[in-house]
Simulated scan of single mutants.
Amino acid sequence: MSTPRRPVLVVDFGAQYAQLIARRVREARVYSEVVPHTMPVAEMLAKNPAAIILSGGPASVHEPGSPQVDPELFAADVPIFGICYGFQLMARALGGTVTPTGRGEFGRTPLTVRSTSGVLLRELPAEVPVWMSHKDAVTHAPAGFTVTAESAGAPVAAFEDPAKRRAGVQFHPEVAHTACGQQVLTRFLYDIAGIEPTWTPANIIDEQVALIRDQVGDKKVICGLSGGVDSAVAAALVHRAVGDQLTCVFVNHGLLRAGEPEQVEQDYVAATGIKLKVVDAQDRFLD
């Protein structure tokens, strides 16, 4: 059996950027998965995460019924990074203060980096343009955290506690509008969470092939090949895993684009070496 890779979990609090955060983590050569904020902490920890990122979200931490974070998450020895709403949830759960200041910030905003820039923001300019989207603000950091940045509407715009492997930012490092955003994210992943950048997209193929091989064993496999991308990729992965144990079936129903049946019957088979059974069912579908 293959050994599952430890993921960075991106906990989605309704953010439009949750998938983008996961993508940026992968661009840093670290494997990531998006999970809902409703997932129990025990299930998150069962995934043996290398780190957890709390995403932004449209709610206010003060609204009744707004998404919350289980304080048990912070009892676990897992590196945690809060972004925007996730930053505020983290601050409040650990004893900091989140205040409806009435001075929300939206869009491109100057961020003032303090001289105590710490690990996360080290070597950044004294002022950096970042992307903000918040109404409430962290006004007091939790005990043990060092405040490393501020803005006009966020007295605490970044904080960190490297000893406990925790950090957070009010802005969105995952978007292109934030200068040095990817650098901030990788500083958390590499320097605070201590993750080695060893993952590449090729790992997805290797991991899936191993899982398929384990599941199939010495059995035979049949795959319905439609001519579309999804079934073609699925068949290619299974074929890489089990070879001639796979037989694909392609039904020509007469409703494909001109030349597509020939592409499947000739080009796809030539490229992959897959065993293919072709069924000409045009009369049955069109009569």
Rank of each mutant, 00 (worst) to 15 (best):
A76V: 03
V69E: 07
G227R: 04
K275Q: 14
T3C: 06
V269E: 11
I80A: 04
V69Q: 04
T97M: 11
V147E: 07
E43T: 08
L211V: 14
S60L: 10
D77C: 09
A149F: 02
L20I: 13
P155Y: 10
I212C: 02
G228N: 12
V251E: 10
V249A: 12
V229L: 13
G102I: 07
Y85M: 08
V233R: 05
R6C: 09
V78P: 02
L89A: 09
T186Q: 15
D280N: 15
E127D: 07
R114T: 09
K220Y: 06
K47I: 00
L246T: 03
G96Q: 07
V184T: 11
H37D: 10
V11F: 10
R165D: 06
L73I: 11
Q263K: 12
L20P: 04
E127M: 13
Y31D: 09
Q19S: 08
P4G: 08
L225G: 10
V251F: 01
D77V: 04
Q19G: 13
K277S: 08
E27C: 02
H62Y: 04
L45S: 02
L276K: 10
Y85R: 11
G14W: 09
K47L: 14
E196K: 13
G56W: 08
G194I: 03
Y268K: 00
G194T: 03
M132K: 06
V175C: 10
A93G: 02
T112F: 00
D287A: 13
V35C: 05
E260D: 14
P125I: 05
Q263Y: 12
V233W: 06
W131N: 03
M39E: 12
R122H: 14
G86N: 07
L121H: 07
C248K: 07
Y17A: 14
R284F: 14
T148D: 10
T99V: 03
T97G: 00
M1G: 15
H177A: 15
P7M: 12
G168L: 07
A22Y: 02
T200V: 13
A202G: 14
C180E: 13
R257G: 03
E72C: 01
P79K: 04
A50W: 00
A152K: 12
Q68P: 01
E265C: 12
H253T: 09
I53R: 04
V8H: 06
L9I: 12
V69W: 02
R6E: 14
L20C: 11
R166T: 03
W199P: 07
A258M: 03
I274C: 14
I21R: 03
V69Y: 02
V242K: 00
A42S: 15
P4R: 08
A157H: 05
D287I: 00
F285P: 03
S66E: 05
Q183G: 03
R23N: 04
A176G: 00
F81D: 02
Y190N: 08
A141I: 07
V251Q: 07
E262Q: 15
P261N: 08
G57V: 06
A42K: 13
R257I: 00
L237G: 01
F106H: 14
R108V: 11
G104E: 05
V278C: 14
Y31F: 15
T146D: 14
A167G: 06
G144C: 10
G168H: 09
V113Y: 07
G14C: 09
P197E: 11
Q170K: 05
H140P: 00
T148V: 13
V184Q: 05
A93K: 11
I192E: 06
G86S: 06
Y190I: 04
H253W: 05
E265Q: 15
A157Q: 09
V61I: 15
P71C: 09
